[in-house]
Design a protein around this nucleic acid. Sequence first.
DNA 1: GCCGGCCATGTGAGCGATAACAATCGCGCC
DNA 2: GGCGCGATTGTTATCGCTCACATGGCCGGC
Lengths: 371, 371
Amino acid sequence: MTSALISPEPDVHDGEDGQTAVAELGQTTVTPGRRRVSVMADVARLAGVSQQTVSRVLNDSTHVRPQTRARVLEAVRLLDYRPNPLARALVTGRSRSLGVVSLETTLFGPASTLFGIERAAHEAGYGISIVSVVTLNRDSVLSAVERLRRQAVDGILVIAPQREAVHGIQQLPPDVPLVSVEAGPDEGVAVVHVDQFLGAELATRHLLELGHRTVWHIAGPPDFIEARQRIAAWRATLEAAGARVPPVLLGDWSARAGYELGARLAADPEVTAVFAANDPMALGLLRVLHEAGRRVPDDVSLVGFDDVPEASYFAPPLTTVRQDFMELGRRSFSLLLEEIERGMRSSTHVRVAPELVVRESTAPPAVRARA
Amino acid sequence: MTSALISPEPDVHDGEDGQTAVAELGQTTVTPGRRRVSVMADVARLAGVSQQTVSRVLNDSTHVRPQTRARVLEAVRLLDYRPNPLARALVTGRSRSLGVVSLETTLFGPASTLFGIERAAHEAGYGISIVSVVTLNRDSVLSAVERLRRQAVDGILVIAPQREAVHGIQQLPPDVPLVSVEAGPDEGVAVVHVDQFLGAELATRHLLELGHRTVWHIAGPPDFIEARQRIAAWRATLEAAGARVPPVLLGDWSARAGYELGARLAADPEVTAVFAANDPMALGLLRVLHEAGRRVPDDVSLVGFDDVPEASYFAPPLTTVRQDFMELGRRSFSLLLEEIERGMRSSTHVRVAPELVVRESTAPPAVRARA
DNA sequence: GCCGGCCATGTGAGCGATAACAATCGCGCC
DNA sequence: GGCGCGATTGTTATCGCTCACATGGCCGGC
C-alpha cells in the first residue's frame, strides 16, 4: 500500500520562504527545504518485497526470481533510488574509493599519472580522493596519508617522484594498502614505475648507434629519483660502449634550464649528440642551438624524454622517450586493488617499459664532425 | 610483536599463508590478518565514561568537565583512536567531502584551479574527490556529476572553461549544491571566475597607453569561454580608444599556435603590439619574432595571459596578466560551502580580479614605427 | 527549605545499508 | 509418499556514530 491516498490538501504551510514541503507517504516527516530522497525501505515497500531482496537485486543478484527482480528494478526507477554509499561502506568496510597523494605541480609526468589513475579507478568503479602537497618530504607524505585515511579510503597511491618522499613512505603504518607510483623505497612497499633505466639506455644507445662518439646529458634535478636513474643509465650505456663520459649538466626540468645549460653545449663544436632528461629542457636546448646557428639534426642530434603532446610539433619534431602514464596509472591501480583484496601489503615492483619514439631531431653525425 | 626473539628457524607456516593471527584483548575475536581498530566504545570504556561523552569531547566539546575531557583525550591517544568518518557522515548527512569535475588536461589554468580548490578545502577540513573528463559536454558533465553524487559528496565544483559544459550544468538536478568555476551559465548556477574582460582590457590598454596605435590579438580556441571573453574585451577596448581593430588570430593555447600564427605578425612591420591569450602562445610568438629578427620589446611589444611560473624567465621576461588560481579556488570553495550550509543553490556570480604584471616585453613603439 | 534551571552526563533510537541465519516452497528420488 | 536439498525470500543483528531526550546534582532566589 504505497500511498494509497494522496490528500489534495497537503498539511503544510506552503511557506515563508517559497519552498514547498512535500507531503510524504508513510510515517516519515519531512524536513522542510530538504527534499527527502528515497531509501531502500521505500523501494522494498513499493515493490512489495523485503529490504533484503532489494539489496540482493542491487548486489549479488543471485537467487532472485526474474519477476521479482523486475518489480524491484521498476520501483528503483520510479523512486529514482540510489543506494547510499556511506551506509554500504559502513557495513561492508569498503568505501570503493582510493586516495592519491600528488605533488601540487603541473609537471607533465605527475599530472598525467594522476589522470591515468583516475581513469583506471573509474573503469573499475572506484572513486578517488586527492591530497596535493607542495613539497614531498617525510612529514608532508605522512600527513597527507593521514588525511586520506580520515576519508575512509580503501587504499592509497603515492605519486612520489622525489627522494624525500621515500622516507615518509617507509614510516607509514602498515595497516593500509599502499602503492608508491613513479618511485619508492626498495623494500616493504609496492612500487610501480616506468623503467627509467631502460628509457635512458634507449635514448643513449640510439644516439651511439647513429654513429655519435659520445652523448651529452642535460639531467633533471637530482632530488628526483627519475633524474638520477636516467643519469646512471646514460653513464652506464656510454661506458658499456667504451665512449667517453662527458660531465653531466644538471637542470630543473624547465625549458629555461635547457636553454641556459644548452648555451655551453651550443658553443662546443665537439658536441654532436645530446640527451635531455625531459622534453621542455629539450625545447630550450633546441632554441639555443638554433640561435647559435647549429642545425638539428644536421649538426646536433637531440633526444628528449616524456613525449609531451607538443613534442611532435617542435622544430624539428622531437625524437623522445615515451612514458605511458595511462598504463602507469592502470598498473598502479590494479596492484593496489590486489593489496586491498588480499588485505596485505605487497612489495612487488612493477616496471612499465618506456618506448623510443624516433622523429626528426636525430641523425648520424655530419662528416666533418667525425673528421 | 616485532620479533623480540629472532629464532633461527621461524615457524614459517603458522597458517597456510604466512599471516599471523594476533590475539586481542577482551571479548572481541579477531579476523586473522586484519588488525582491529578501536572504536568510540573502546575509548568510552577506557575513559570510564559513556560513548556520548566521548562524542561530545570530539565534537562540540561544550558541557564537558575539563577533567573528563582530559581523561577522554588520554584514552583516545592510548588507543590511537580515529573517528570513523563513514559512520559520522551516515548519521549527520554530511561527508565533509567535495567533488570536483575537472578536464583531463595539464593546461595551466584548470590544473592550477584544481590545486587551489584542494588547498582551500583542505584548510577547511574538507576532502575532495575528483572526476576527470576528456571532453566537456553535456553528457560528460552529467555523468561526472552523477558519479560524484554516488560518492556522497556534500557539493560539487565543476571546472568548466568550455561552452559545451554549460549545457550539462544547466540540466543538473537542483538538489545538490554546485558551483561552476571559470565559467558557467548566466543564470541558475553560482559561478566563480576570473574577470576575463578586465584582464584583456588591462593588457590591451597597457599597450595602447604605451603609444601603440593598435594591438593584435592571438586568441584561444573559441570553444573556451575565456577565449571569447578576452576577444570581446580586447575588441571593445580598441574601439573605445578609437583604434583600428585588426583581424583576430585564433590559436589553441599551444606554443606552436603562437609560433605559427605569429609568423604572419612577424612578417608585418605594421605590427608593433600583440596581446596573446595565454603565455605559451606568447612564448611561441616570442620565438618566431626572434627568428624574424624583430626585437622584443624594441620592435614589438607583447603581453601574455596567465603568468605561468616560467613567464618571468622568458627572453625577455614576459609582461602578462596574472590569474590568481589559488584565490579562484578559495572563492569557489567558500561559495560552495555557503550553498551547502544554507541548503540551497545560489546563483551568485563572483569575479576574481586579474592583475597586470609588467615585465620587460612591453615598451613604447620605436620612433620609426610611428613615423 | 523548596523549586526552577543550568551543568554534566547517560540512555535509547536511529542513520541506511549488508550479513548471517531462518523460514518457506517445490521438486526429485528412493 | 516422505525426505532432503536448492531456490527464494524474510528476519534480526550490526556497522560506528550522533541526536533527542532523560537524569541527577548543584546553585541561587524567595
